[in-house]
């Protein structure tokens, strides 16, 4: 049983690291601000979720797991909000620049 759990934890950790890796690569490869936001927000959300899930399985049913779960929920709430705000300000800057050129 313990071995089974350990294997599951390792798989989750590797998947989480993979998504963080993809997010970092996307940040470098994508052409502009908005596309970069796509790569970073999505992959970071998923990567953090999987890694925290692995930690929760490792800790079992304890208060620590509950705390980790709350942290996870707050990450999932704030991550898209931050992305939204960055994208909005980038959009407004873009809009202003094109208006000036015309």
């Amino acid at each position: 049983m313990q071995i089974f759990l350990n294997i599951m934890i390792i798989i989750l950790l590797i998947l989480g690291l993979f998504f963080f890796f993809v997010g970092a690569i996307g940040l470098i490869r994508m052409p502009d601000v908005f596309c970069r936001m796509h790569a970073t927000t999505k992959c970071d959300t998923m990567g953090a979720g999987l890694i925290f899930m692995a930690l929760m399985i490792w800790k079992g049913f304890t208060f620590t797991s509950l705390t980790i779960f709350i942290i996870l929920i707050f990450i999932w709430l704030t991550n898209p909000t931050a992305a939204h705000y960055i994208a909005k300000s980038a959009y407004q800057m873009l809009f202003k620049n094109t208006e000036k050129k015309e």
Partner: peptide
């Protein structure tokens, strides 16, 4: 969405 973005990025 994550799988899709990962495929596109890689």
């Amino acid at each position: 969405s994550n799988v899709q973005v990962a495929i596109i990025v890689l």
